[in-house]
């Protein structure tokens, strides 16, 4: 049934697909995951801080982000970021923000909501006695968090954080709606240019599947190792 399909289109375009497309996708994934985990951890700490207002703010942020479709959030930031930039540096007009920066800000802020829920569970999984012991030794809140609680929380939650990163990797394909050349965007552009939609989309599916499947196998292996050591 593939007789009238021309898979040479893949051979002719693989440099573009991987060097332009996949590089964008992977860079965006890595940076947004990093930023998302850092911001998410801060939000989780706010949520668990027991201070006035901060927990409510954190909770509102998380629930807000989790109520919205990622596509809508992508549109929001695409239009909003230039205005925020203008306001920040006090320029005359909305500033031009590149596609990459705009997507990076979007994914960092959006995924932070999801990462914060994971980190919250991670911090809560550490017995209360650990924090008490750290305080008893004279550590400040930040010292206790940085040296005692967070390292353990990260360790326990590493498999879940990585699984969420695989989800993030898949989610980055949605930058397609801004006509950005990520991996899917590149595949799509070649597909339209050469009229080879079937071949290109099947190939994109296979690549995404291979990457995610192998990554999730590795995460599962890691999970078993972490589980045994504990």
């Amino acid at each position: 049934m593939f007789s009238n399909f021309d898979f040479s289109v893949i051979l002719n375009s693989w440099r573009y697909l991987f060097f332009d497309g996949m590089t964008f996708t992977l860079t965006l994934t890595a940076l947004a995951a990093l930023g998302g985990v850092v911001l998410g951890t801060l939000i989780a700490m706010m949520r668990l801080s027991g201070l006035p207002v901060l927990p409510q703010v954190a909770k509102a942020y998380v629930n807000f982000m989790r109520s919205l479709p990622l596509v809508l959030v992508i549109f929001w930031f695409y239009f909003l970021v230039p205005y925020i930039g203008q306001w920040l540096i006090g320029s005359e007009r909305p500033i031009q923000v590149g596609a990459f920066s705009s997507s990076l800000i979007t994914f960092t802020l959006f995924e932070a909501a999801y990462f914060s829920e994971i980190m919250r569970a991670g911090i809560q999984s550490i017995p209360k006695g650990q924090a008490a012991a750290a305080s008893a030794l004279g550590l400040t809140y930040w010292q206790a968090m940085g040296n005692v609680i967070l390292p353990q929380a990260f360790r326990n939650m590493l498999p879940v954080l990585l699984t969420q990163t695989i989800v993030l990797f898949q989610d980055t394909s949605l930058v397609y709606v801004l006509s950005i050349t990520d991996f899917l965007g590149a595949a799509s552009k070649v597909a339209q240019r050469d009229g080879r939609l079937v071949e290109m989309y099947l190939f994109a599916a296979v690549v995404y599947f291979a990457v995610c499947f192998i990554a999730s196998l590795l995460v599962r292996r890691l999970q078993r190792r972490v589980a045994i050591i504990r």
Partner: peptide, 13 residues
């Protein structure tokens, strides 16, 4: 199969 392919790609398929 269905978890490891982005939804958008599935939509196109």
């Amino acid at each position: 199969l269905f978890r490891n392919i982005p939804l958008l790609v599935q939509m196109f398929l």
